[in-house]
Simulated assay, not measured.
Amino acid sequence: MKGAEAEARAGAHLASLGREIVARNYRIPGGEIDLITREGGTLVFTEVRQRRQIRYGSAAESVTPRKLALMHRAALTYLTRELGRDDLPCRLEVLTIDGPAETGPITVIPLDG
Rank of each mutant, 00 (worst) to 15 (best):
G99W: 11
V48W: 00
L43N: 01
A10T: 10
P65R: 13
L14H: 10
L35P: 01
K67M: 12
A23C: 02
G18S: 14
L83E: 06
L43Y: 13
R81W: 03
G84P: 03
R24N: 06
K67V: 04
E7Y: 13
L111Y: 05
P65E: 11
T46N: 04
A69I: 02
G3E: 10
E47C: 00
R91D: 02
G84F: 02
L79W: 14
R52W: 07
I36C: 04
P29T: 11
N25K: 13
A59E: 04
V94L: 06
L43M: 01
G18C: 13
I28Y: 09
I97F: 02
Q53N: 12
E93I: 00
A12S: 14
Y26K: 10
D98Q: 09
H72W: 08
D98P: 12
P29F: 02
R55V: 13
V22A: 06
R9C: 07
A12L: 14
A6F: 03
L83N: 05
L70I: 01
L14M: 15
G41W: 00
I33L: 07
K2N: 05
V22I: 13
L76R: 15
V48I: 07
T103L: 12
P100S: 15
R19G: 08
A6T: 07
H13V: 06
R85F: 09
E32N: 11
A10K: 05
D86V: 11
P105V: 06
R81K: 08
L92S: 03
L35M: 08
E93R: 08
Q53V: 09
C90Q: 13
T103H: 14
E32L: 05
L43W: 05
G3F: 08
E93S: 05
Y56Q: 13
I54H: 07
Y78Q: 07
P89H: 10
E61D: 11
I36N: 04
T64M: 11
C90L: 05
A8N: 14
L17M: 15
R51A: 12
L95P: 04
E7T: 08
A23I: 01
Y78A: 07
T64W: 09
L79Q: 15
V94K: 01
I106D: 08
I106R: 09
L68T: 11
T107L: 06
A60K: 09
E5H: 14
S58W: 07
L17A: 15
L83M: 13
A10H: 06
R51P: 02
V108G: 08
L111P: 01
L68W: 05
R66N: 08
L92F: 07
S16K: 14
R49I: 00
R27L: 10
